[in-house]
Write a protein that binds this DNA or RNA. Structure first.
Lengths: 200, 200
DNA sequence: TTTTGGAACGAAAAAACAAATTGGTCGAAA
DNA sequence: TTTCGACCAATTTGTTTTTTCGTTCCAAAA
């Protein structure tokens, strides 16, 4: 029994560490957060942390994994909703843009003093990139199957959408565009994606 | 009369310098090309160059201006052609992608050793960015006026197109995609832009 | 036995300092 | 009018020294 209790408290401690680390990493980035910083946030000696994690890298990965899990849940809700395919794609794109804004928030401080190693953003993106493709593809295939979309080459449409979203990231992050305005921009661009610009 | 001859030879010398500088800048970038490099390419002493240009910056600007001029000519040909608007936009996008590839070629060496100050790319882009918007707008307005395009918000379509093109730059530069394949990709993406993906 | 933290180690980064480059000037020579 | 060697100031580059930081070790606490 003591083993069970011990296991639980061990996991709780890991969670506490991840919680604190998430705060600090998001403020200072991977490089600029020291194990001491995390330890101080927990009111422990830094070597104690090594009882729960193999090292800084593992803590960071736990943080990223947690964020990914949260995101995955949100995506799941959209995908399994009863909305029509067009709405689903709209919802997904908006969620994705919110995510980017969130991540940008994470690193905005680092942009200035450090060269912004892109640690958080980059690692997170890498983890997420493959998955994003499959999400878009899933929506597109659903649309084709339901007869909503006419798509010559599904790979190409995928690429077009992801490309457009990535292209939007920069201006989105750079300019402090308001939320309502951002929504309008996304809607308009999605209209172009859905219906094109040629008159028929 | 001697003044006239002198003026001509002076301009010729400037052209020669720009010609050599273009080669060297494109190989080594702005920072890593020294005035000595340019001078040696011309088989002159470096101080002689200062008789023709105020400094490195001015030479560089002359190089950029020349490239911009060449590009402007090509754009002019497309815009004033008798092609339909859809074809014009296609041609322009392809030209633009070739340009990016060209510029990428310029700096590809620097990407590695230096942090790639983006000197050439960045300066050139800055100069070109405003102009690009007006080119796209011109084509779109022509399309609307001729009844080819139905566009709710012309600013938005502009943004969508430029966004898509910029988004395409990265994969275009990164992957060594073949010319034919690149053409197909652009065509397919433009099809989406023109006709959308929703079935009607 | 589980958990904590002070001390110590080694690698990596930062700071400090010395040496080499380089953009630009000047005056003389051609 | 045009070219160039000599020179200067400032930035860059290369090198050494110092500090920081992630990690390990081990003894003490719980």
């Amino acid at each position: 029994m003591s083993a069970i209790i011990s296991k639980e408290s061990h996991d709780e401690m890991r969670e506490a560490i991840v919680k604190v680390a998430t705060q600090i990493f998001s403020r200072f980035g991977f490089k600029k957060t020291s194990m001491d910083d995390i330890a101080k946030g927990l009111r422990m000696g830094k070597s104690s942390i090594y009882y729960y994690f193999r090292g800084k890298e593992e803590i960071f990965r736990a943080v990223v994994d947690q964020e990914a899990e949260i995101l995955k849940g949100k995506v799941e809700i959209i995908l399994s909703s009863a909305d029509d395919t067009v709405s689903k794609l709209r919802s997904y794109v908006k969620l994705r843009m919110d995510l980017v804004k969130h991540l940008a928030n994470y690193t905005e401080i680092l942009k200035n003093d450090d060269l912004m190693n892109m640690e958080i953003t980059e690692k997170f993106r890498k983890k997420y990139d493959e998955e994003e493709i499959s999400i878009i593809r899933q929506i597109l295939e659903e649309g084709v199957q339901k007869g909503t979309f006419k798509i010559k080459d599904i790979d190409m449409s995928e690429l077009a959408i992801i490309t457009a979203m990535k292209g939007l990231e920069a201006p989105l992050v750079a300019t402090n565009i308001g939320d309502e305005k951002l929504n309008r921009v996304i809607d308009d661009i999605l209209d172009i994606l859905f219906y094109g610009i040629v008159n028929r």
